[in-house]
Amino acid sequence: MNRYIKIKKLAVGVIASLLLLSTQSFAAQQGHLKVTSKAQKMIVVNNNGQKAYKFVPATKILPGELVQYNTYFQNIGNQPANNINIVNPIPKHTVYLPNSAQGKNTNIVFSVDGGKHYGKAGTLKVRDKTGKIVPARPSDYTHIQWRYNGNLAPNVQQAVAFRVRLL
């Protein structure tokens, strides 16, 4: 009888640890960074005769209007993160606004082939309608990549941004 109880206890223990194991493997994993993408609509306003932008929530947007995307990345781990790369495809139905990609401490490169290859703005080439190789325009960009220089210390948050026009 005692032996049976022991076996039973053992079985329960095994099942319990298996359950624990499976729970761990199915639970949402925690990475070291938290990544957030926010969209804001840009409105041109007159600021004492100067053209300025005002940012409002991206709730009412019509064709032709401008949207700024901010990508926040925060180190939520306890070790510094390095070699950070942020890749953002230009959203479908929008076109990249020239010189709008920004990010402190980053090198910014662009792709015109769906993210296969990247190069600095001004170095990329595309074929025009006649098949001739011509310099790419910002509206040809398909992806943006920010290469963050240096370490991102624990708890530190940084952001990169770019702007598009809704087609």
Binding site: L33, V35, S37, G77
Partner: peptide, 16 residues
């Protein structure tokens, strides 16, 4: 209109 950014990084020289 949808947007997703993807971040890759290393911790202590290891790809994450």
């Amino acid at each position: 209109i949808q947007n997703i950014a993807t971040v890759t990084y290393e911790i202590a020289g290891e790809d994450q």
